[in-house]
Design a protein around this nucleic acid. Structure first.
Lengths: 327, 327
DNA sequence: GCTTGCTCTGAAAAGCGTTCCACATATTAT
DNA sequence: ATAATATGTGGAACGCTTTTCAGAGCAAGC
């Protein structure tokens, strides 16, 4: 296929002029512009984007990492990102990392070798040092709180989320409350646990180790929780669960085993997945789509403003209680 | 950051030699190789991928179009694609098209301007001509059957799917059966409808226009179906529904309005979304993850085999009935 | 002893577009 | 009338790597 030089030759002008037409620069004679456009059309010419990227140093692509693609929480974030991205003519490189620092690093590397202009990490397993290191190569935004010095974030206030959930359950009279979270040591989890323990302490309840479930990621993990609850000495009367699909697993299995929800076991979920509405799960909800939108906005600003390099920025989303039928 | 010339200068060799080291060519003296690697390390050098892409004419990125990101059916396909892609060192550019031919065209364009090496279309709204046109710029695989001459596909046998569902409902004694599909005129829908009408005809039932629901895309659309069913003269006793999340909406709304499932209304869904299992929906299931895997494999083969250009290939997945509680 | 075939290396071309700088012409302001 | 500004255009450098080709040195084979 033709290149810009060929077009220039055919039009009897310099490549600069063709480039100006291609990029809508002013200062091109209208007649020439029309002529050049005609030839471009005839030759079925389009720019080679790799040459453009090489020359401009930008790719108009942003990376998005997430542990797994097939999860509504992450899908909602991407939806928010995607809607913004399309408006600003950015494309999305979606990278599944399986919570594996190796794979995550390979994505961070894309920043270094200029394949992407910026990166949104919906979840991360890399160390602070790694993140800080790569932040030097391009803007990074995490959708979790993070303790780095240079990586900005947009995140749900998970401490507040669990606080609201716990207060609500306690107001309903529950004292033996269990929790269920995903990755044990993520920042998100730490905040959740802090709220959980503080609240139980405030009513002088010593939480049993049997009430805590970690590394719950799939619906099946939720189901498994119920089996384990049955073997508990003092079974909790309520569970606060970090995601609604886990909550769904719990509810489903509970009903199969004849444990009625909410009478025998109350369940509060913590996101805005549609499954929550479908199963009428009481939830402490924040909009993950909105989070994605904010993340893109923040990233976009940083891509276009060099002064912001290294200046950390944080945006927190506040959750809201949605009362339904599982409490 | 340093470039390959600088590395060459520091190592006292030519750029070709450095390039050979970078690309693991044989024919580089081991001592020199070690020396060069050391300098690369010291200088914290990495290739500029845009220059590599420009030079090689490949980007190791494949595009994936889907109407909306936040949908489990499409997420499952992507999951299948992603798992394969990571093994072959490809990255994924995920593009939400909202079933809009304009937006779809902008993605096809990526093939033309060399931003992606191939394209998987999980769903498409573009015309055959458009598809054939762009197929000249790089391999395209659709995850729906298509009637082009040059675009290959991996798809679920939707005719068979509806056939199995219909036969099953008929065996259970249903005669007034309705259906619920997504986009009215997609290839998938046409096949489904053909099976639906054929089967009803085989038992001499004339389907009422009131039994057919098209353009059902969201859970809410499913709920709305129930409202409309209530106003029907002769209400169907069973519904065959193209996706389980629509089926979920139907079931949910039915239970709210006191219509019992399956006694008053039997429901069969047609995919393998987890929501189907959660709500115990009877479904005619095929693995969308597997479809994604096959799609990548086919695409990958085509990227590396020029002979295949223009040779159409089709792979069909057969569905299986999973009996649960909604029938 | 001469040919053949490896191993190893560098120069240069090819891949392609953007942008800065210099220069020319035309128009407006003083 | 002259300076200043706006408009329009081309040349050349720049961004960076891969790959082909040519050639040198050396070992093995006939």
């Amino acid at each position: 296929m033709a290149n810009i030089r060929e077009i220039a030759k055919l039009a009897g002008v310099s490549v600069s002029t063709v480039s100006r037409v291609l990029n809508n620069h002013p200062y091109v004679n209208e007649k020439k512009r029309a002529e050049i456009l005609k030839i471009i059309e005839e030759q079925n010419y389009v720019q080679n984007s790799n040459a453009v990227h090489l020359s401009t140093g930008k790719t108009m692509v942003i990376g998005v990492t997430l542990p797994l693609v097939n999860n509504q929480y992450y899908s909602s974030i991407i939806e928010g990102i995607a809607a913004e991205a399309v408006q600003h003519h950015y494309k999305l490189m979606v990278c599944q990392t399986n919570n594996n620092p190796e794979q995550e690093r390979s994505v961070l590397h894309l920043l270094k070798n200029k394949k992407i202009d910026g990166l949104i990490m919906c979840s991360r397993s890399s160390s602070c040092e790694t993140l800080n290191e790569y932040a030097g190569y391009g803007p990074i935004i995490t959708c979790e709180a993070n303790d780095t010095t240079s990586v900005s974030s947009v995140h749900i206030d998970h401490y507040q989320t669990f606080l609201i959930g716990m207060e609500y359950l306690m107001k309903k009279g529950h004292r033996r409350i269990g929790y269920c979270i995903g990755r044990k040591n993520s920042f998100n989890s730490q905040h959740r646990k802090r709220a959980y323990y503080e609240k139980l302490r405030s009513i002088d309840v010593t939480p049993s180790a049997e009430w805590s479930f970690e590394e719950c990621l799939t619906i099946q993990d939720g189901k498994d929780v119920v089996g384990k609850l049955l073997q508990t000495e003092e079974r909790p009367t309520a569970m606060i669960v970090s995601c609604n699909h886990i909550a769904a697993g719990i509810i489903k299995e509970a009903s199969r085993l004849g444990i009625s929800v909410p009478e025998d076991l109350a369940v509060v979920g913590c996101d805005d997945q549609p499954i929550g509405e479908l199963l009428e799960i009481t939830t402490v909800s924040s909009s993950s789509t909105l989070m994605g939108k904010y993340a893109f906005e923040m990233l976009h600003k940083r891509i276009w403003t060099q002064q912001l390099v290294g200046k950390k920025e944080e945006k927190e989303l506040s959750p809201v209680l949605v009362e339904r039928l599982t409490t």
